[in-house]
Design a protein around this nucleic acid. Sequence first.
DNA 1: CATTTGTGTTAAAACGGTGGCATGAAAATT
DNA 2: AATTTTCATGCCACCGTTTTAACACAAATG
Lengths: 349, 349
Amino acid sequence: MKIENPTSRDIADLAGVSQATVSRALRNSPQVRPETRARIQGIAKELNYFVNRNAAGLRTQHSNTIALLLFDETDGTDKKMNLFFWAMLDNITRAAAKLGYDVLVSLQQLTDDWHMEYQASHRADGLILLGYGDYAEYREKLDALAAAHTRFIIWGPIVKDQPGRSFGCDNESGGYQAANHLLALGRRRIAYIGRKRRGSPEHAARYDGYARALLEAGVECDDKLRVPADNSERLGYAAVKELLERGQPFDGLFASTDLIAIGAMRALADNGKTVPGDVSVVGFDDMPLAAHVTPALTTVQQNAEIAGTGLVANLVGLIEGRPIESRLMAPKLIVRDSCGGKARLMPAG
Amino acid sequence: MKIENPTSRDIADLAGVSQATVSRALRNSPQVRPETRARIQGIAKELNYFVNRNAAGLRTQHSNTIALLLFDETDGTDKKMNLFFWAMLDNITRAAAKLGYDVLVSLQQLTDDWHMEYQASHRADGLILLGYGDYAEYREKLDALAAAHTRFIIWGPIVKDQPGRSFGCDNESGGYQAANHLLALGRRRIAYIGRKRRGSPEHAARYDGYARALLEAGVECDDKLRVPADNSERLGYAAVKELLERGQPFDGLFASTDLIAIGAMRALADNGKTVPGDVSVVGFDDMPLAAHVTPALTTVQQNAEIAGTGLVANLVGLIEGRPIESRLMAPKLIVRDSCGGKARLMPAG
DNA sequence: CATTTGTGTTAAAACGGTGGCATGAAAATT
DNA sequence: AATTTTCATGCCACCGTTTTAACACAAATG
């Protein structure tokens, strides 16, 4: 029983039934009698038959595929996204598979004229935009997407008036948790190192959370404790050096990314400050390195499984015409060694 | 000029020409007069028209898509592949795009009945199998793939009698380079820690390269210096501890993975041995952590760009019917601090 | 001038499914 | 027994391309 490229018609002939019935039987239509269905499915399996996706897609006008567009913020040698996005990819493909969708991946150049083609060519039914970076720059492209009625969802914060739907991490809450943790440990002069406003709503939100925690605790939010720095070890190092040279006293430090935190810790060590003895440090991201530095870094983690499944669920919702709103997921503080004082937070056991 | 979902027929009507001519014009067929072609392409762009991939694929019987099947060797929490595979994914998508192919990604469960469907359903024209792990286990699946005339290429070593084509890293050469580096630094009692034979041809090859280097240098290849260990920090630690407890003298160490090397270095430090003073250490993989441990690890690196483009080029070759042979790419030794004695290798500058 | 050779275009036949409608038989209702 | 309803299946149009074969028409050839 060998047919080179079996079609549903071949199966129909073998089963002594019409081709349409085969099509229905294979999709478990209740319209076809159970025993016929079983017979047909048996023959299909026997022949190693699989539905031709092009033909089916042509007829039904959808591909059961979503496109994942990744924008890699490669800063010279350092690939910033790495493990989190890897985990995200993992969860996205799993979630998509569970809903019957394939995932098309494209690592885009920021300059490319990407995106417009995917849905128009019926290659994909919708898009996930990941690693989007500086939103303002892409505004024009998002508008074009929306104008073409492309279904897409953005991994990122909720930005006012931005077209489309987002799914992101509640950075404000993350910043709040980080600062609160430091406050609970008795720290009162907590420095903030990171981008604050320009270009990055995520980092702005992290700062806002930090500020809210201080406010609620009745601790002054001192501008002298805030040092701007982009996401790199070097700039974290420089920022701490600046604080120390200024003679600015501080006993806690919240860095808006792990890389900054790691650079900061190195700067503290190089200048005779102990972590967590003199200064407690909290980062953001939980990158893989975070658990391996000394002392292991306490940081705010985003759950990739929730993120991946959330993105897919929302996109499929859009595709299938359900009303979908932008949403944020809660990040989680991972307590390691860089803050000390675990005992003060937990009952001795 | 707005048509909701323009087809080639719409363009034909607008251009006052037949639909067939539009099809040809859009694919730059020389059969259509340059001025007609230009006019048609202008209208297509105007309408934001893109060829319906399902229809085109149905007609031509190929999808211009390759499927990337990733098998994640997740050992509990640790995702081993991470950055190398991430870089690979990056290069694969780029190389594929350059040749006009899309990439469908699937992170498979090892138990899944994957693969058979991809080509049979015309979702993909061929498969790349990545992170394949223990080959023997999958032998049956590979046979099934080959029997179904599926085009596929495996990232991994060349295994005798294995169906299909492979593209991999020359692990033997990597092991040889590692051992030679240690020998060039004057080390003579070089331990090997890693899997040797069972299940992993890659690791076997690394050992073989190590053995060849020793042989060529006239250094005895002592079985007492060889400790088996699977890929984990813990087992690398344990292996070194065993050597030390045995009282086995050694001044060099080649670990078949970076994780093992990192565990080994920690064990050495814990037992009062200095790296690279007492023992020079070389790893394999160049995982991201390698550059960040202290001392920074000298290791053997595989070039993800060569790997990604090589895999894609070979697969596309198979798809397009060219004769393709299995190939290995050369890895490269990255010299950092864990061996010391750079000066001895390079002329003083 | 009749005939061959190109050249640019069109008409029409696939490609392999899906889904609306028609159909005939069996079951249920009058 | 005649009619309606239900069920299972068949028929056929259609999705939007690519590609073969046919066809005008012009230029080149005998």
